[in-house]
Simulated scan of single mutants.
Amino acid sequence: MSVAAALGTQALIGVSPAHAAETSRAPIDLGVLPGGTFSDAYTINDRGVVMGVAIPADGAEQAASWDRKHRITGLGTLPGMDRSDPKGINDRGTVVGDAFPDPGYFRQAVKWDSRGRIAKLAAVTGFDYSRSVAVNDGDTVIGEAYDFSADYRAVRWNRDGTATLLPLPPGVYFGSQARAINNAGEIVGDVGNVPLRWDRDGHVMQLDTLGGGWSSPQAINDSGIAVGYGQDSAGRSRALKWDRQGHVTDLGTLGGAHSQAVAINAKGEVLGTSSTSDGTTVTVRWDSSGRITGLPEIDYPQAINDRGDVLGRTALWSPGGRITRLAPLADGEFADANGMNDDAVVGLSSRTTENGSVYHAVLWPLRKP
């Protein structure tokens, strides 16, 4: 096992300097489907297309998208299914997700092209059901196949529509999950608490651990650097970073025992959480050199963009320490952010009507640097 030195010294720990919080510009109401009263925006791609969900007049929640002019399209579901749930969007505008009946255990992985046309992803031999996780800019989709026996396997759906079961390491026979894919087609996931990476040809590599009972990578950038979390030999949950060779680094904490990493941007800046010496858990950001900064004003880490902005549920932290509170709609009481690109944040805001509160997808434009 090759384990890089942990970055846990006080010299590498910081707290974002306090700044007076600003309030964002008023969000743009992205609206709802005809006859509907609810929508929620999950994320936005680099071309400004938004992905989320909406409830039409018949009351069955479905995937939805909004184009750059903020026009909504209901993406629907497969024949015989009741609902759909989106999981990811790429810069081509391809959306992936699941179609399912009520109740939703029996899922079928699907994708919608940039024109909103739905297609069932190929069945996987030996498995009854499937669910998608993410899609890269080459239209390669990852997810899982599963069946009544509770067996599940990581799957890659190629751009030509064919499905490939991702191989397992020697001595393992079931239970793999794919977590993330980059634009080079590299996939990270885990099996039986063992962290894995698959290259674009499907060859599997077992990643190093800290000697604890489990590890799980959660994200990978286009440089092939993966982040996640795992247990060390003392039983503590630690934020981890893996290089291209599979060597692991403990990213350290803000003085507490535990930390987790959940996202990484193109520059190698990492988003996660850490406990402090008094047991409090706060959002943190590690820069590309491994310096950790606490962001106590960010209530829950949602995303980090390539500019280094960090998004929480109700606020945005920008490099330099500026905090921007996300305003609700003018007639609303609260706002809840979900995702962002370099130019905008998307999420949900309440609206007050004569019949009570309703909830609409919204977009907050970001200030240019």
Score class of each variant (00 low, 15 high):
residue 4 A to D: 04
residue 298 I to H: 04
residue 209 T to I: 12
residue 59 G to T: 07
residue 195 P to T: 09
residue 188 V to I: 10
residue 33 L to K: 02
residue 207 L to E: 07
residue 11 A to N: 15
residue 132 S to L: 05
residue 96 V to T: 07
residue 160 D to C: 07
residue 29 D to G: 13
residue 262 V to Q: 04
residue 92 R to Y: 08
residue 59 G to P: 09
residue 68 R to T: 15
residue 285 R to Y: 14
residue 180 A to F: 09
residue 97 G to K: 09
residue 338 N to Q: 11
residue 322 R to N: 13
residue 11 A to H: 13
residue 152 Y to N: 03
residue 229 Y to M: 01
residue 91 D to K: 03
residue 75 L to T: 01
residue 119 A to Y: 05
residue 94 T to L: 11
residue 324 T to H: 04
residue 207 L to G: 02
residue 316 L to W: 00
residue 280 T to Q: 11
residue 202 G to L: 00
residue 35 G to K: 09
residue 148 F to I: 11
residue 176 S to M: 10
residue 175 G to D: 00
residue 319 P to W: 06
residue 12 L to K: 13
residue 320 G to V: 04
residue 176 S to C: 11
residue 104 G to C: 08
residue 95 V to I: 15
residue 97 G to Y: 06
residue 34 P to I: 11
residue 212 G to W: 06
residue 271 L to F: 00
residue 174 F to N: 08
residue 192 G to C: 07
residue 161 G to T: 07
residue 128 D to V: 13
residue 190 D to N: 10
residue 319 P to A: 06
residue 278 D to A: 01
residue 289 S to V: 12
residue 142 I to P: 09
residue 320 G to H: 05
residue 263 A to Q: 01
residue 38 F to T: 10
residue 145 A to V: 12
residue 319 P to N: 12
residue 23 T to D: 15
residue 9 T to A: 15
residue 198 W to V: 01
residue 16 S to L: 14
residue 88 G to A: 15
residue 315 A to M: 10
residue 200 R to E: 14
residue 235 G to F: 09
residue 290 G to T: 08
residue 99 A to Q: 08
residue 214 W to G: 01
residue 196 L to E: 03
residue 196 L to M: 07
residue 135 V to F: 10
residue 135 V to A: 08
residue 350 S to W: 09
residue 212 G to A: 04
residue 300 Y to V: 13
residue 168 L to D: 08
residue 143 G to T: 07
residue 176 S to I: 06
residue 322 R to K: 14
residue 165 L to M: 03
residue 360 H to F: 13
residue 66 W to C: 07
residue 207 L to P: 10
residue 323 I to C: 13
residue 188 V to C: 00
residue 96 V to S: 05
residue 242 W to D: 01
residue 58 D to V: 03
residue 244 R to T: 14
residue 257 A to R: 11
residue 188 V to R: 01
residue 240 L to R: 08
residue 58 D to L: 00
residue 305 N to F: 02
residue 139 D to Q: 02
residue 317 W to I: 10
residue 76 G to H: 07
residue 316 L to F: 00
residue 132 S to T: 03
residue 262 V to M: 11
residue 208 D to W: 05
residue 126 G to A: 13
residue 216 S to V: 04
residue 327 A to F: 02
residue 353 T to L: 11
residue 157 W to D: 10
residue 105 Y to M: 13
residue 169 P to N: 06
residue 165 L to G: 01
residue 261 A to G: 05
residue 285 R to T: 14
residue 163 A to V: 02
residue 70 H to W: 08
residue 224 G to R: 04
residue 50 V to T: 12
residue 19 H to P: 03
residue 208 D to K: 01
residue 15 V to S: 12
residue 116 G to Y: 00
residue 328 P to K: 08
residue 86 P to F: 09
residue 202 G to A: 05
residue 290 G to N: 04
residue 196 L to G: 07
residue 333 E to L: 15
residue 252 G to Y: 03
residue 248 V to F: 06
residue 57 A to N: 09
residue 9 T to I: 14
residue 320 G to F: 06
residue 341 N to S: 06
